[in-house]
Each structure stands twice: as structure tokens, then as C-alpha cells.
Design a protein around this nucleic acid. Structure first.
Length: 420
DNA sequence: TCTGGGGTCCTAGGACCC
DNA sequence: TCTGGGGTCCTAGGACCC
């Protein structure tokens, strides 16, 4: 059996952990630049606040209804996510960390009759030691476990655990699950299937393999099998190395000055390079893109990108920043108000298998040692201790985060203080 | 009338996820 | 003023190889 553990309204719950007066109150978390709503507590959902609702339009509503609003604090969420994973790991041998707030657990070592008790224990362990409420769905396949989890969130809020342990139960639950709520059915397939009268997951299981294969590729066919109880999606116990790494962000305000944009780009490039080094990969291709605000129809628009193939794959920040700057130089045009810049790296090879270049003049050994030193300094003394000149200090590009909560768990200066 | 056949690799675009 | 960011997988079609 497979269980999926899903943190309830994760970001909103994180904000509550060190701020218990938010318990029972409506809480929402906003996207980068405080743009729109990306997480809501149950109370916020009950008030009718929609996912993606624009913050500036909701301002009055938030005030009237005493909604607690936060800028997203990924440092805090990432840190609490790690804590949750640690607790889960203490219960099972094999698990797949699926996202910041979800993990699949392999329960094949447990007897069917032990499972519900175990999951109730897991749930209270996470709540007690981290402070995050979770919901657990259990079933023979990942897709069915997701169905069970969704059902648990709607119908078994108190226990928070739901086990699809018989074919009859599976059948009933599938008939109560809307097709659009199935893991793997996005908006396009939802529209198409609904038009055909396939309204529930149970309806979907009645379709033929051929039809599903033809219209939804092998991905759809796997989903069909999984809903019928035949596992097709393996557990990934170890995260495979990434095939692409990207860093891009909208600016807190529109920028037209090239220097400001270059500073942002240098920072994003460094971020990607650090991630590359962490997974011991080098990239042979770096792309830079730049764009104005597509929502401002009255302003003149510009989007451009450039891909730079590298003769020798690398993961050193200094070299990658140099290429990124060269790329920006090629695509930057004066006279536009820019909203976003980004960098993307693809075509990875393992650090240990780099093909040298005949005419390569870069001092790679020296650069690699420099990166090792830089990374270990930053690891020991904080992420931004050693920087490249190109990263600058002006930070005109920085995010708008007007309602940021403290990084309670990762910055000693922001730790919780208690009056005794 | 007829235009080889069997492969690989790469890219762009679409769909999906959280 | 104001609309997130970072990924994955699959397929079709073109280029290219022998």
C-alpha cells in the first residue's frame, strides 16, 4: 500500500506555527511581489477567497474580514518542510518526497490492519513535533492514494486519514470524485471529458484503453490503470538530478536601467550555479530572457531571449555570470519598462565527465577551487557572505514583500522571543 | 508507373504538477 | 501601483546518418 501525506494549506499553516494567535482566524499567503493569493487557511476559504485572487482588489475585503495576510516566506516554508520530512522518515524505510508539502510513503512492510493506526500516529507526530496539520490518503496506487487524500480532506477532517482498503470502497469514492480533481487531469482534459459526459473518476474508468491512449497519450493510460488499482507510477526514492535549472523573478517595480537588470540577472545566475554545483552537474547551455509587463497593454511590449551554447560545460558562477551578461547585452533594448529577467540552464553533464576544449583558456582548476571556498564560506556564515561584484548592492530589483513574517527557524536574529 | 528503409537525436509545443 | 515560480513528461516533426 501507498500513503500520500499532504500538509493542509501548507503555507498558511506555516505562518501559524510560531504565531498561534492566528489559530482559527482566516490567513492568506500572497505570491511573490504580493501579487495574488496562493494559499488560504480553511477560514479564508470559507470567506470565499479564491486561489489567485488579486491582492490589490481584495485589500478592502481583507480589512473588513480581519484576514491575516502574509508575503510568501519560502525560507520558513522550506525549513518547516524539512522538519516534516524528518518525522515521516522516522516511520518508514522508503518514501518519495514529492513536493514541498507532500510525500508518498511505502507501507508494504505493514499489515493492512495496522495501517490506519500507524497513519493516525504519523499524523499526530507531525502535528506535535512540527506543528503542521496533515492529511493522509492510503490506497494500492499513487493515483488512488491521491483520491483518498482528497476525500479525507473533504469528509474525514477530524481523523484526517482515509484508507481505500476494498474494491467497493474504491468504487464508491471514485464515483464521488469529480474528474477534474483527479491527479493528472488538468483544465484542458477536464473540459474535454466533461463535455463527453465523463464527470467523475468512476466514469473515466469506464473508457476504453484505446480512446484514452489516443486522446491523452500514455500518461492518460497510466492514470486509467492506476485508478483501476494497477500500479504504473513507480516510487522515486531518490530525487533524480534536475535536467534544467531556472531562476526568474518579476521585479518589485518596473525597471528600465540596464545596470539594475544586470544586477538582478547576476544574482539569479549565481543562484542557478549554486544549485548546479550542489547536484554536481555542469551546464553546456545558458539562456537569458527579458520581458516587459504583458498585462500592461497600454505600454509598448518587448520580449526577447538568447541561448548561448558553451564550448566547455561549466558550473562556476563567475564564468556563467560572464555569459549571462553577454547575453543580456545582446537582447537589452533601451526605452522599455522591464518587468522580469531570467536565466535558464539546460544540457547538463556530471561534473566528473567534462569534455575539455582544445582552445580553452579558462583556468578551470583555479575557478573550481574558488567555488569550493566560496560555497563553504556561504554555507558556514550565511548565503550572501561572499558575493561577486556583478551581484551589486543596490537591489533595485528586489521583491515587494510588505508583509513578510520572520524567518523563525533559519536566522538567529529573527528567532521567537518569549516573555516569562 | 515511379520516389529506400530504418534508425537516432534534437527541438518546440502542449499538458500537467505543486 | 497591482496578475508567481520552477519543474516534469510526452509527442510530432525535422535533420541527419548509413
Amino acid at each position: 500500500m501507498i500513503a500520500i501525506v499532504d500538509c493542509n494549506n501548507f503555507y498558511a499553516s506555516c505562518e501559524r506555527v510560531f504565531n498561534p494567535k492566528l489559530e482559527g482566524k482566516p490567513v492568506v499567503v500572497l505570491s511573490n511581489n504580493d501579487g495574488c493569493v496562493i494559499a488560504r487557511s480553511e477560514e479564508a476559504k470559507e470567506l470565499g477567497i479564491k486561489m489567485g485572487a488579486l491582492a490589490f482588489e481584495m485589500e478592502g475585503f481583507f480589512n473588513q474580514n480581519k484576514v491575516h495576510v502574509f508575503s510568501s516566506n519560502y525560507t520558513l516554508y522550506g525549513s518547516l518542510s524539512n522538519r516534516v520530512i524528518k518525522v515521516l522518515a522516522s516511520f518508514v524505510d522508503d518514501m518519495e518526497v514529492y513536493s514541498i508539502d507532500e510525500a508518498f510513503l511505502d507501507l508494504s512492510n505493514y499489515k493492512t490492519e495496522e495501517i490506519v493506526t500507524l497513519c493516525i500516529q504519523i499524523r499526530s507526530a507531525v502535528k506535535n513535533s512540527v506543528g503542521i496539520p496533515v492529511t493522509i490518503g492510503i490506497a494500492p496506487t499513487k493515483t488512488l492514494a491521491k483520491v483518498a487524500n482528497r476525500y479525507a480532506k473533504k469528509k474525514c477532517r477530524e481523523i484526517g486519514v482515509y484508507f481505500l482498503d476494498s474494491p467497493e470502497k474504491i468504487q464508491t469514492t471514485l464515483s464521488l470524485t469529480e474528474i477534474g480533481d483527479v491527479w493528472g487531469i488538468g483544465s484542458k482534459h477536464n473540459i474535454r471529458l466533461s463535455q463527453m459526459g465523463v464527470l467523475t473518476a468512476a466514469d473515466f474508468t469506464k473508457l476504453s484503453n484505446e480512446w484514452v491512449r489516443n486522446h491523452m497519450t500514455v500518461v492518460g493510460e497510466r492514470m486509467l490503470q492506476e485508478l483501476k488499482g494497477i500500479p504504473c507510477i513507480e516510487m522515486e526514492l531518490e530525487a533524480p538530478p534536475k535536467k534544467g535549472i531556472c531562476s526568474a523573478r518579476s521585479f518589485g517595480k518596473l525597471l528600465s536601467n540596464k545596470q539594475d537588470i544586470a544586477e538582478a540577472l547576476a544574482n539569479y545566475t549565481h543562484t542557478c550555479a549554486v544549485k548546479l554545483r550542489l547536484q554536481k552537474s555542469c551546464t553546456a547551455s545558458i539562456s537569458v530572457f527579458i520581458q516587459t509587463n504583458p498585462h500592461r497593454l497600454q505600454e509598448k511590449q518587448y520580449f526577447n531571449s538568447i541561448t548561448i551554447p558553451l564550448n566547455v560545460a561549466t558550473n562556476t558562477s563567475n564564468e556563467l555570470i560572464k555569459y549571462a551578461m553577454w547575453g543580456l547585452d545582446k537582447i537589452y533594448r533601451k526605452g522599455y519598462n522591464y518587468k522580469k529577467v531570467g536565466v535558464m540552464m539546460t544540457h547538463f553533464t556530471p561534473e566528473s565527465q567534462i569534455q575539455g576544449g582544445l582552445f580553452d583558456k579558462v583556468k578551470r582548476d583555479r575557478d573550481n577551487m574558488l567555488m569550493k571556498t566560496l560555497d563553504s564560506c556561504n554555507k558556514a556564515f550565511g548565503k550572501d557572505l561572499v558575493r561577486f561584484a556583478r551581484q551589486g548592492y543596490k537591489r533595485n530589483w528586489k521583491l515587494k514583500q510588505e508583509r513578510l513574517s520572520p524567518c523563525y527557524t533559519t536566522d538567529i536574529k529573527q528567532i521567537l522571543t518569549i516573555k516569562i
